[in-house]
Amino acid sequence: MTSAAQDTAPADLRVGVIGVGQMGADHVARISRRIKGARVSVVTDYFRDKAEEVAATAPGCRVVDSPEELIAADDVDAVLIASPGTFHRDQAIACIEAGKPVLCEKPLAMNPEDAYAVVEAEKAGGAPLVSLGFMRRFDAGYADLKDAIAGGELGQISMLHCKHRNATTLPGFSDTMMVYDSAVHEVDAIHYFLEEEIEAVQVVFPTPGPRADEGQHDPMLLLFRTASGVIVTDELYVNTDAGYEVRTEAIGSKGIATIGLESGRVTTHLAGARWGGAIPKDFRPRFIDAYDAEVQAWVAAVQDGTNIAERSATSWDGYLGAAACQAAEKALTADGFVPVTTRPRP
């Protein structure tokens, strides 16, 4: 005979969602329809009518007028932040001070100083409560490549080659936005794959592309150098008029592995090769499973009482990303490599 405790399933994690634009609304739908062990209990948005519309799609969900009210609510156990990045610092710190786990969409903050303030607040609180929404860490291909690198299958890694392509961007999408909205994903991937910090970054502009008349350097190439000397290239081409492509190739002493050419990893070993697959063309099919896995892992970690999901980016990762992007922004108008300046980890 089983005990009453064994017969009783744990209560669903009550999640409050701040910001229900495209990303926030997607997360509400995700938690309501595909995630186990959680439900959306409260939402808030600057546009009240949008919040009401989204809340109506989540059973038992209510709307409040402010992020502060949501974070303090008794029927919110954990918070998902999907508001504009300018608000992430203060909202993340408010969650930390309330003792509530938070999954914050990238960026953690708009500059390294504000990101470091979140790191310090988390340290002062005595518990790691912040998970950062770099969903690629939960993509099957990224996880496979990470494990191959960590397990030594590819030997010593000397280079990574990254490609980040979009079909088009809205008018006014500047070079700086290419760094903070696009390259930031590759920045986090570097930290994820190599487990070391970026030391310097350089930007190279090739022949002007289709947005040259608008002052946008597209495509552009970023070069990163890590602390151990690994070189990473990151091709940004955000107006291809073709589709969405994300690829990463790791060059090692024992083999070369590529993700993004098909549904899994293609590895060329010195003794042979494996090929195959097709390139995904659209953003949502490419990473919808990764988003689902990320949120499910976060919910499970909170429910189990563990700190964060195993592969999740942390507040420190968010700080390192902000520091690297700040250097990349400076490199847009500088010659040669620009050093990445970071403070000691608290």
Rank of each mutant, 00 (worst) to 15 (best):
T168E: 07
T57G: 06
A117D: 08
G155R: 04
V295A: 12
I259F: 03
A150E: 15
I190A: 02
I198L: 15
E294M: 14
T2S: 05
A11L: 12
R343A: 13
F337C: 09
D74R: 08
R33A: 12
I81Q: 00
D175H: 04
V28M: 10
R211A: 13
T233E: 09
V184F: 04
P10H: 10
R211N: 15
H27K: 10
D139V: 06
F287Y: 01
D49E: 15
D304H: 06
I259A: 12
V204W: 08
H161Q: 15
A212I: 09
E245Q: 05
Q22E: 14
I157T: 11
V17I: 14
G243F: 02
A324C: 11
E214C: 05
L132S: 04
V20M: 04
E214D: 08
F87T: 12
T314N: 14
I93A: 06
T267N: 04
G85F: 04
P280D: 09
A4P: 11
F224M: 07
G336F: 09
I251T: 08
T314E: 10
A297E: 13
A183M: 14
A4L: 15
Q216H: 02
H269D: 08
S253N: 10
H164C: 06
L261M: 15
D7S: 08
W316T: 07
I18A: 04
A98G: 12
P285I: 05
F87E: 01
M178K: 05
A313W: 00
P206I: 05
N307Q: 02
M135W: 15
G215H: 08
A212M: 06
W316K: 04
E262G: 15
D12K: 12
D90N: 14
A58T: 03
D139G: 12
V266G: 03
P206D: 11
D282H: 07
E120N: 06
I71Q: 06
G252N: 00
E214L: 11
M135K: 10
A250C: 03
P280C: 00
V299P: 10
I81Y: 00
P219F: 02
G272M: 07
A78D: 04
H191V: 02
Q6L: 13
R48Y: 15
A11W: 11
A227S: 14
A167R: 13
R247T: 15
A98I: 00
R137Q: 02
Y192W: 04
D304E: 10
A94L: 03
E113T: 10
V63N: 08
T86D: 10
